[in-house]
């Protein structure tokens, strides 16, 4: 039976884990917990399905918006300062 504080510690790392931004030891701890905790695993599945849906929404985004963000990023990398 997973304990509550371990559940909270694992859920606190939900986004970094799904983005692959946790250390290897953190990742192993989270994976081990999710294998035994259906409730936490369902939170991670829900969040992952959200991320998949956002990525899949790309064709629905106005082309200009995607392009604007890309161009602004490129400009700022060259030292451009927005307002």
């Amino acid at each position: 039976m997973p304990n509550r504080s371990e559940c909270e510690a694992v859920v606190r790392q939900l986004w970094p884990y799904l983005d692959g931004a946790v250390s290897e030891s953190q990742r192993e701890r989270i994976v081990a917990h999710l294998e035994g905790c259906v409730n936490c695993a369902s939170h991670f599945d829900f969040a992952q399905s959200f991320l998949d849906a956002v990525a899949a929404a790309r064709p629905h985004l106005p082309a200009n918006e995607v392009l604007r963000v890309r161009v602004m990023s490129a400009l700022m990398a060259e030292g451009f300062e927005a307002q």
Binding site: E8, V11, R12, L14, W15, P16, C40, H43, F46, A47
Partner: peptide, 12 residues
């Protein structure tokens, strides 16, 4: 940042 992760679970 960690609270945002907890918020994601609550939203679920």
């Amino acid at each position: 940042q960690e609270l945002e992760s907890l918020a994601a679970a609550r939203l679920h």
